[in-house]
Write a protein that binds this DNA or RNA. Structure first.
Lengths: 288, 288
DNA sequence: CCGTTGATGGAATAGATATTCCAAATCGGG
DNA sequence: CCCGATTTGGAATATCTATTCCATCAACGG
């Protein structure tokens, strides 16, 4: 049955299985098939809605080469591979898009319509978050916070939800954390000591309290990591790293979906690095 | 050029334009084309990845009927219509899916990988939120809160981010709101007066403080609206309406994307209803 | 009840698209 | 430098999909 020796004979049953196999094949593929593999890895989302001609052109190869590539992956041909992507697409796909279109029939502005709109906005925010995300900056932010003694969090108004969540998660992971509420007193400053770090969150319009705390902390050479919704925010002066999460709005309102997602990722990553540090320090005996 | 009188001659330039036109055509369509319209409204997401045969079968009509339907919408044929959906799909589509697949190459567990995972989880949470959303319950929740004098919010730990955001938004919309922090005192109770309403948020594992405040408030016949991540949560006894928002997790962690989206929708809807109420009361003179 | 108009189903056709095939090119080893 | 094995490009073909056409059917007005 399976003539060629490297062919597993079985086609992948899901997209992630396919990606596994792609990784498995590694660099053993001939030049043109390698181009196909690269192109596929970077443009998975196109498979469901494109033709072999489109894809092969994108990869810079002949259709026949792309065909051979599909077969090298274990499929009978392109159609079988595409079926996989289409099936996955059908399942995961927003029923909410349908819902939105149904809701336009009976008047808008109701809570359900709002929910659908905010959900759609959330999808878009997440997409744009990932499109604009700078891996290096994120790594750096992570490193700074993981290296700190105590992590100080500040964020008011809309931003408070973010620091509240981060504070809760960091605390659960046993990372020393303080949430600052600048209720008039300036005493916050003294709690932030050399060796600590400050994570400041502020969206337009920025609260003076947050900006000032960040500025004073930076002046004392304590590292500040900032999260905002725009790159030209006053925090960029004080911050060693400025992360951006912009939300898609519905009317004048927005859900902090992207910011929340980014902040949570950061918290979990920092928690993970901290755990490693602890494990090493205590000589491997303390786990979990 | 355009022979038929009812044909606008111009094809829609986007999916939402298409839906507009669908609504415009309303019930003027003959039976079979009406079936197509219905099916399309409920299955928009299938168009990009299906054939005329699939869709017409789904709608229960002949391919030729579906063809006529596409033309009635102003397209030259099905292909032109499908192109629209495919284009929209290509644009909106998660680059983050690609990113995830690229990241599997160079080791996992880094912050960027986490962000991509949480983003994907967020997409799924939003989809499942909208799939499971009960419009009637949401309306009812909205009505109860809009009718209240002051809206009281309670939620601790993970839930605090939710009430914090709601409190901020309601306040911005000039809805009288109090966020309760049960810092030991029971005095919270006295602040909640007849005519008010309580919005209680609690996720597993539930905090006693929230549950108890909700229970005591319900006993006093003050309406309680609850938000949780599971239907069998202790709040269901006290609550007149229990809303559910379940999050997809990454490992042991989750971002409160769905809950945040639902809560924000509720807040905006309530704010809208309040404004109407105000406008009516003040005899239409106060607008903005 | 009949004739006209519009809608419908199904088969025929035109057009894409996937898939295969083979000659030419390339590569690697002796 | 040559020979065999592999890979490649492009054209030929098979398959599948969209699209049209027309005979039949239902609805409606006279």
């Amino acid at each position: 049955m399976d003539g060629s020796p490297s062919d597993p004979g079985q086609a992948p049953g899901s997209v992630s299985e396919l990606l596994d196999r792609l990784d498995g094949l590694g660099a053993t593929l001939p030049k043109r098939l390698g181009q196909c593999a690269d192109y596929l890895r970077h443009n998975i989302h196109l498979v469901a809605v494109s033709t072999v001609a489109d894809l092969s052109a994108g990869a810079g190869v002949q259709p026949s080469a792309f065909m051979r590539f599909c077969q090298a992956l274990g499929f009978s041909g392109f159609s079988e591979m595409q079926a996989l992507f289409r099936a996955e697409y059908r399942e995961l796909r927003p029923d909410y898009a349908e819902r939105l279109s149904q809701l336009r029939e009976r008047g808008e502005e109701g809570p359900e319509w709002l929910a659908a709109s905010f959900a759609e906005a959330g999808h878009k925010s997440l997409v744009s978050l990932m499109n604009g995300l700078d891996g290096a900056k994120l790594d750096e932010a992570c490193r700074l916070l993981a290296a700190a003694g105590t992590i100080h969090l500040v964020g008011l108004r809309r931003a408070f939800a973010i620091v509240s969540t981060m504070g809760y998660m960091l605390d659960k992971m046993q990372v020393p954390t303080v949430i600052h509420r600048t209720s008039g007193q300036i005493e916050s400053d003294h709690a932030i000591r050399p060796g600590d770090a400050l994570f400041a969150v502020s969206f337009t319009p920025f609260s003076q309290e947050t900006l000032q705390l960040a500025a004073r902390t930076a002046e004392r050479d304590i590292p500040v990591v900032a999260l905002s919704d725009t790159a030209d925010c006053p925090l960029r002066e004080a911050a060693k790293v400025l992360l951006i999460a912009r939300e898609v709005d519905v009317g004048a309102f927005r859900v902090p979906t992207a910011a929340m997602t980014l902040a949570t990722s950061l918290a979990v990553a920092v928690g993970g690095m901290r755990k490693d540090r602890l494990t090493i320090r205590s000589n491997g005996s303390k786990m979990e």
